[in-house]
Every structure is written in structure tokens, then in C-alpha cells.
Amino acid sequence: MVLLGTMVNGAAIIAGTLLGILLRGIPESMKNTVMHAIGLALLVLGAQMSLKTDNFLIVLLSLVIGALAGEAIKLEDKFTNAGLWLEKRVGSKEPGAIAQGFITSSLVFVVGAMAILGALDSGMKGNHDILYAKSVMDGFIAIVLTSTLGIGVLFSAIPILLYQGAIALFATQITRLVPDAIMDAMITELTAAGGIMILGIGLNLLGITRIKIANLLPGLVAAAAMTAALQVW
């Protein structure tokens, strides 16, 4: 089943969120320390990923193009509005809490090599091992994020199902469209661009910056397109 890994990933996030709700009573100072720990860990992960590039110019240009496209279509605002819409339906007592949890967790779970590689493996080979491993990681991250950001983390399962599911379905046909060498190069630059975005998420969680990471997401598409064009050329 092509979508099995993605479905398990979504279920793990939901389960982690439900467990995290039980930990919401921990002291505020502890929540802040935990959030800072996550931020520091994301800085390390993002740095490791970003250094894997074979062509930093592609990564730089993809981020610039992504920023221009994201700002033009106001992608961050769309994420925020979706979170606020969910907030109204759920009836949160803390204004903006669900939106913040939804946006932050969605970006953490979506931006990364495992999401792309795992979904590609599911579609091309029917192998869900990468997404199973990602599910375990995301489940634990969801527990911690929920304990600090609240129930909004639960709704991040929706973009995960849509994003990874779409890649997995596309991957069933990708071997006929994209040669292995081009695919490997695309994944390398996607990983590097995603790593810089994860660095930004970490800085935001630490309260150092307020970067609109969602507006950079089109950069992933730009990185893939430029890498493919360069390989063909």
C-alpha cells in the first residue's frame, strides 16, 4: 500500500499530541527550557543538512526565489489563517495558541529530508522503513511540542498526509520520468535548502528571530527545478 507509511506518520503525530496534552500541566519555566532544547537541536540538525549541498548557489537562489514567491502569495498568512480557522472551530481559550502550534509543528514535520526520501521510497519501492522511523521521531517531537504549544500540533497531521501522500503517489511514476542521477542530485539540494529552513525554525523557537519560514517553502520546488535543469543542461 503506497500510502501506508504516510498514514502511520500521521497517526504517530496524533498519538504524540494526545500524550502531550497530559503533560500540559508542567511548570512554565520547564516548558520554556524544553522549547529552547528543541530549538538548539533543530539548529544542529539544520546545520548538518545544509552542509550536504553540492552547489550552494542553487540553495541560495532557491531560498531567494522561494521567499519572493512565498511573500507574493502570502503563504505564511495562509498557514496562520488556517490555524485561526481551526482555533475558532475548536474554541481555544488562548488566542493564537492553536495557530502557533499548527504552524510550528507543520513546518518541523514537513521540512526535512526524511519526509521527501521516505515518501519517495514508499512510492517507488513500496518500502516504508524511512517513514516508520520518521513516525517514531515525529511522535516524540509531537509530545514535547504539544506540552508547550498545545492542541494545535494535532492538526499538523493534515499537511503531513497531503504533502507526503502526494509525493508518494507521484513517486509511483517518477522512475519513468526522472533518471536516478538527477533524482539523487535533486534530493541533495532539497535536503540542503530544507536544512536552512530548519535552522530558521530553531532560531524562531529560541526567540532570536521571527523568520516567516512558511514563505520560504516554495524554495524547495525551486531547488528541485534548478537542480534538474542544471543536470539536464
Results as ranks from 00 to 15, higher is better:
Gln231Met: 15
Thr175Val: 11
Ser122Gln: 05
Lys52Glu: 10
Asp138Ile: 04
Ile167Trp: 00
Ile160Val: 15
Gly118Pro: 05
Pro218Glu: 04
Phe102Lys: 06
Ala69Ile: 15
Tyr132Ser: 08
Leu42Phe: 14
Ala142Cys: 11
Gly118Lys: 10
Ile158Gly: 02
Met114Asp: 02
Met30Ser: 13
Phe155Tyr: 13
Ala133Gln: 01
Val111Asn: 03
Ala119Thr: 00
Asn204Arg: 04
Ile201Phe: 12
Ala119Met: 03
Arg210His: 15
Met137His: 00
Ala133Asp: 07
Ala113Arg: 07
Ala41Tyr: 05
Gly70Pro: 13
Met1Glu: 07
Thr188Tyr: 06
Ile98Ser: 10
Gln48Lys: 10
Gln231Trp: 02
Leu60Gln: 13
Asn204Thr: 06
Ala171Gln: 12
Ala229Leu: 10
Ser122Asp: 14
Leu154Met: 10
Met30Phe: 02
Asp184Gly: 01
Thr191Pro: 00
Ile13Ala: 02
Phe155Cys: 02
Asp184Cys: 05
Thr172Gly: 06
Gln173Pro: 02
Lys52Met: 15
Phe109Asp: 01
Ala82Lys: 05
Leu18Tyr: 13
Gly46Arg: 13
Thr148Phe: 00
Gln100His: 15
Gly139Thr: 07
Thr172Glu: 14
Ile26Pro: 09
Glu94Cys: 00
Ile65Asn: 00
Leu63Ile: 10
Ile98Glu: 12
Asp77Arg: 12
Glu28Met: 10
Asn32Tyr: 03
Trp85Tyr: 15
Ile26Asn: 11
Phe170Cys: 11
Pro179Val: 03
Phe102Arg: 11
Leu75Trp: 05
Thr191Cys: 08
Ile213Thr: 08
Glu71Phe: 06
Thr191Lys: 05
Glu28Tyr: 05
Lys212Tyr: 08
Leu43Tyr: 00
Leu57Val: 14
Ala142Gln: 07
Arg24Ala: 13
Ile208Phe: 13
Met49His: 11
Lys74Gln: 15
Glu189Trp: 07
Gly202Thr: 02
Ala115Met: 06
Leu154Ala: 13
Leu216Asn: 04
Val90Thr: 05
Lys74Trp: 03
Ala193Thr: 12
Thr172Arg: 08
Ala47Leu: 15
Gly152Trp: 05
Leu177Tyr: 01
Ala99Trp: 09
Leu3Pro: 03
Ile141Ser: 00
Ala12Cys: 04
Glu94Phe: 14
Glu76Lys: 14
Leu216Val: 08
Thr6Pro: 02
Ser105Thr: 11
Gly219His: 10
Gly139Met: 04
Leu177Cys: 07
Asn215Ile: 10
Leu190Phe: 07
Ala157His: 04
Leu161Pro: 06
Leu3Gly: 09
Gly91His: 02
Ala119Gln: 09
Met197Trp: 11
Lys212Ala: 13
Ile14Met: 09
Asn9Ile: 06
Ala193His: 08
Val110Pro: 01
Ser29Ala: 04
Thr104Gly: 01
Gln173Ile: 12
Ala181Ser: 12
Asp77Phe: 08
Leu43Lys: 11
Leu86Asn: 04
Gly5Met: 09
Gly91Lys: 07
Leu199Arg: 08
Met197Leu: 14
Ala41Thr: 08
Gly118Cys: 08
Arg210Gln: 12
Ile143Lys: 12
Gln48Asn: 15
Ala222Ser: 07
Ala37Val: 15
Val8Asp: 01
Ser62Arg: 11
Ala67Gln: 13
Gly66Leu: 14
Ala224Gln: 06
Gly101Asn: 11
Pro95Ala: 13
Gly118Met: 00
Gln173Lys: 14
Leu107Tyr: 04
Ile201Tyr: 10
Leu22Trp: 01
Met226Lys: 03
Lys125Leu: 06
Ala11Leu: 12
Met35Phe: 12
Ile116Tyr: 01
Ile208Ser: 13
Lys212Gly: 07
